[in-house]
Design a protein around this nucleic acid. Structure first.
Lengths: 189, 189, 189, 189
DNA sequence: GATGAATGAGGATTCATTCAT
DNA sequence: GATGAATGAATCCTCATTCAT
């Protein structure tokens, strides 16, 4: 990807995290990216397009990070735990400042089927894990979207609160929370 | 509360749900509320204050709805189920269009201690429930914020996806999901 | 008409005459009219609307001036001469600087039927004169639009050249030109 | 003339006719002419110069067309009729889309004496005709510019209205109009 | 208290022009 | 000569806020 385009996307992400959705001006982005205002329009249709593309850009990053160090042949619990912590780390360390969902979720997005399809493909490994767990009879027989809400979403939610200082989560509590999420998605006699 | 102030808040909520955060102008609010633009400034410091107060306004509504039909002497599981469904209903039926969290969560808010305190008081019944469950030995020994993330947050998350059409949740699946959330917060030998 | 609206229209006319069509900015208009930039948009949809309305505004002025001091019971030749000179005066003295057709003609205009109708009504007296002349058998039997092009348009054309300094027209030559236009529209054995 | 320069001029003329004066951008011209934006600046100082040169370019074309098929030894009336119809055809058929005066007249132009001189030379044949007619005692004794306004300008004016659909001019009416213009410039006892 | 006309700073976007390749 | 990416000033327009009535 062009150097400039990359810089513009990163500037946008940073400023979005810092100043929120409104209060993001094209001039600010230009300045932060060390690019002239007009240059942005070589790479992006308009402000909306910039935000759309940022959404996709981040989604790619997230899909990548999310499934880092996860192999199909790891025990399910370990796969799950790894993903859970991947999410937690992303949202906490915020090397990519917007992943901090909540802001990301609210980026304007194309709601096209292609977009939906893309998201599916990106999170294929998550699906595989859930499917495997259900085939095993270890996981509850629920739609993967629901399992995701039960098992992984809390990681992002809690991380956001943790970062905002609403709760402080000790290492011990963190482990207990992961187990609780596991409890949510697994069957109990 | 003054009739005008109430009308302004409701107009703001409606327009916010419809047009999103940016794309909400004071003139629009004035028109929708059938009030002169200047009048808004009798009741609200400025645009930020309007949004802050709207946040509080809605929070009050949510706190109310959330604990509707919940009594301390109901069995814990029933208390929990009722709250869970209260959240689900709010987010799905959207009689108050913004509760649909995601938009609400991202309202700018004062992060003052008073604000935090207010939220605490509002959700006192939730805390009571969790405290009771932990005292019983029935719930996991985790911070109430964490229990909330595990047990109740999924209701809002899922409802949002349901409304957006990302998943369709049958009545049966809904019950199973509630049980799964219960699994998340309760102890298992 | 509101004082401000009037001032904006006059400023626009002046600047348009001076700087031409491009090179007319809303800020310039605002400054010239001693009005804030935003104020223009209370009275005019956008820049196009401003120009449209200016067109109508001027058209009204022209229709008025054109037939000043013309009565139905004057001899036809005198009616004609008066109108001819009214046009000449307008274009030369430019109390209203844009009448100087050529610039006026090229204002963007709504080409709606209402617009056409309006123009018709405005120039009704001209039509009456031509109709009368044709009924008398004094004028050639041509469409009024054609008679207008032959008899009156040259007044504006010549005036423009006169103002631009392309020709200098003496009083004597002026009278001869009027007669020549009369020759163009009247029958000759 | 360089192939590229020619293409640029033609692109400019086409786009000018289509999009009007503002709404003509150098990028558009470049694209239409299949030339890089920077290339325009090899042949033209700046945008103004491009328009100036276009003016001259068209003027040459007009001067050429105007006097096509006109010989000094044709009877005066026939010379006049031929020129009149040349103008009519140009403005109607618009093989060169801008000749449609009204747009052409308003091109920015250098008002230098050289420019004026050039125009003179271009329209020399018209002058010759008028001079001849005055020498004969057949034409009125008026400045050639005035005779031009009386005799030829109406052709362009009417053609513009014809094209715009304001009037429909039958072949018969056309001939009558030519005669009327002849009446305007010739002496009557 | 209420109004809404007026303000003008600030936003997104365009576009003439330059210049390294 | 030719290119077209990059520039950034200038454009049109919006909108939070004020204030005379």
């Amino acid at each position: 990807m062009s150097d400039k385009k990359e810089r513009i996307l990163q500037a946008t992400e940073k400023l979005l995290a810092q100043y929120g959705f409104h209060g993001l001006s094209m001039q600010m982005v230009a300045k932060e990216a060390k690019v002239a205002a007009g240059t942005i329009y070589r790479y992006f249709e308009d402000k909306d397009d910039l935000l759309y593309q940022l959404h996709d850009h981040i989604l790619g990053y997230v899909a990548n990070k999310l499934t880092a160090n996860v192999c199909d042949d790891m025990p399910l619990k370990q796969q799950f735990r790894t993903m859970w912590l991947n999410i937690w780390d992303m949202a906490c360390h915020s090397d990519a400042p917007l992943i901090n969902r909540g802001q990301f979720e609210n980026l304007p997005r194309r709601n096209s089927p292609e977009q939906r399809q893309l998201e599916k493909r990106m999170f294929a490994k998550v699906d595989t894990m859930f499917d495997q767990g259900k085939a095993d009879g270890q996981f509850k027989d629920l739609d993967n979207e629901i399992l995701s809400v039960l098992g992984l979403e809390p990681s992002a939610c809690l991380a956001r609160k943790h970062v905002r200082g609403v709760v402080t989560v000790s290492d011990e509590a963190l482990e207990a929370t992961i187990d609780a999420c596991w409890d949510a998605i697994t069957k109990h006699k």
